[in-house]
């Protein structure tokens, strides 16, 4: 039997987007190192409910690192100290007994707080709606093998496509930029012959939407790449810039 952990949690509590927020401190004892971070939060909430207090609101869904819903800023890192994972995959064995853990929401002007640790990331959807797609309708499509795609291009596109839209890149960026998110989509689609046709226009539309929604600009600090749970590389930002410059030439 592994040793159970006794922890102190400092959690950001905020009633609504315009309410004033503050850290609240909670003591939590007897946490198994095998439990996940979110299971630890469940236990804390269960404790709060039993005390007839308001449980902490946080977003979560699949709890296997793929849906991109969970979003906690833990000890100064989006998705916590471990690398290449989301909050739901973080396990308590990454923490020491007696440790104080600070939990905050994603902080960015473009992601207003809904309540406590829950933020509104619909700005990401709006960027995709502005052009993050290939303009095809359902049906009347040529055979899937009609255009061969080199394995390298397919794999590189897959690397970019593995973005889960969680927003960690924005949360960690000192400028609050969504460049890695936008770049991943632009890069994925421009690497494929099907998406190449609209590549420049897509880059332009998505970037202008990004600016409009209050995200900052990219100054190449690379924090986004370091904190991305899917290890998406900033080389995709270079590809985005190439497409964007291409759009300028066309204009």
């Amino acid at each position: 039997m592994e040793k159970l952990l006794n922890l102190t949690l400092k959690v950001w509590r905020q009633d609504g987007p315009k309410a004033k927020g503050a850290f609240e401190t909670y003591k939590l004892n007897g946490i198994s190192p095998d439990s996940s971070f979110l299971e630890m939060m469940d236990i804390l909430n269960d404790q709060l409910i039993n005390e007839h207090k308001d449980p902490i609101a946080f977003d979560h869904d699949c709890r296997e690192g793929i849906c991109g819903t969970c979003s906690m800023y833990i000890n100064g890192h989006p998705h916590g100290p471990d690398s290449g994972i989301t909050t739901c995959q973080l396990h308590m064995r990454s923490f020491k007994d007696g440790e104080t853990i600070t939990v905050e929401p994603w902080r960015s002007a473009a992601f207003p707080i809904i309540k406590d640790l829950m933020v509104d990331r619909s700005a990401f959807d709006k960027i995709i709606q502005a052009g993050g797609y290939i303009s095809v309708n359902t049906g009347g499509i040529p055979d899937g093998n009609a255009i061969p795609i080199s394995k390298w291009h397919a794999d590189e596109a897959m690397d970019a496509a593995s973005c889960i839209g969680c927003g960690a890149c924005v949360a960690t960026c000192k400028n609050g930029s969504a460049m890695l998110f936008v770049a991943a989509k632009v890069s994925q689609l421009s690497l494929l012959p099907q998406g190449k046709i609209e590549a420049s226009q897509r880059a332009k539309k998505m970037l202008s939407k990004m600016d409009e929604l209050g995200f900052g600009n990219c100054t190449n600090t690379g924090a986004c790449e370091a904190e991305c749970p899917k290890n998406i590389s900033i080389t995709h930002i270079a590809r985005l810039n190439r497409e964007f410059i291409g759009a300028k030439f066309i204009d």
């Binding site: 797609y133 290939i134 095809v136 359902t138 049906g139 499509i141 040529p142 055979d143 899937g144 093998n145 061969p148 795609i149 080199s150 394995k151 397919a154 794999d155 596109a157 897959m158 496509a161 994925q188 689609l189 494929l192 099907q194 998406g195």
Partner: peptide, 20 residues
Amino acid sequence: SIIDQCVAQGVPFAREYGGL
């Protein structure tokens, strides 16, 4: 038709070295 549709949308399915 589903496979064709998804390829057209830019779903990066795994491919062989020959591109298929």
